[in-house]
């Protein structure tokens, strides 16, 4: 996983709990390099899971909630640093449809070692999208947060449900049903 994800996770934690707390939590967590991360490095995804768990222990918030919040944080970060991907998109559904075939494609060009998920999108109608997320990494709620934040970004609202009945063949897949409210 790219160092930038770790650095941003710690930034979020600092803004939420303060620097001291972050330092303490990192000290207690059993991390390979003592919690020193740089944006230009690459680190195992398990470390990320450990850090999230450590903050969960500290705050009493569930790891899922934290991941989701982090998804919001990261969407903000993407929007600030990679605004180009958002330009020309009519709405969140169009944006989400573009992740797999456009945005992550560009990411992979720049970082051939990036660990990216796979998305299969099916547009039900103007306001509804079925997005099948597949990844070997346990980041479903992070993805959930990204999707929520994406809808917010485009000034839209609606419901984002995980369909528990759809597990097509692969336990690494999750189906998101995104329904926007009529405007």
């Amino acid at each position: 996983m790219k160092g930038v994800v770790f650095v941003e996770l710690l930034s979020m934690a600092e803004s939420a709990f303060g620097e001291d707390v972050v330092d303490n939590v990192l000290d207690k967590a059993d991390l390979e390099n003592g919690g020193a991360y740089t944006t230009v490095g690459n680190y195992p995804c398990e470390e990320l899971v450990k850090i999230v768990q450590a903050f969960s222990d500290h705050s009493g918030l569930s790891p899922e909630v934290l991941q989701r919040k982090f998804g919001h944080w990261m969407m903000e970060f993407f929007a600030q640093h990679y605004g180009g991907f958002f330009e020309g998109k009519e709405g969140s559904l169009e944006m989400l449809e573009a992740v797999d075939g456009e945005i992550h494609v560009e990411v992979r060009k720049l970082y051939p070692d990036a660990e990216l998920p796979r998305f299969d999108a099916r547009r039900v109608n103007d306001t509804e999208l079925e997005l099948l997320y597949s990844s070997p990494r346990p980041l479903v709620e992070f993805c959930h947060g990204l999707i929520e934040a994406c809808v917010d970004r485009f000034g839209e609202s609606g419901s984002i449900d995980i369909d528990p009945t759809v597990k097509p063949g692969n336990k690494n897949s999750t189906m998101f049903n995104i329904k926007l409210n009529e405007q």
Binding site: L26, N33, G34, A36, Y37, T38, G41
Partner: peptide
């Protein structure tokens, strides 16, 4: 920590 990160 910062130093370690920088060195890395």
């Amino acid at each position: 920590r910062e130093k370690a990160a920088r060195q890395e």
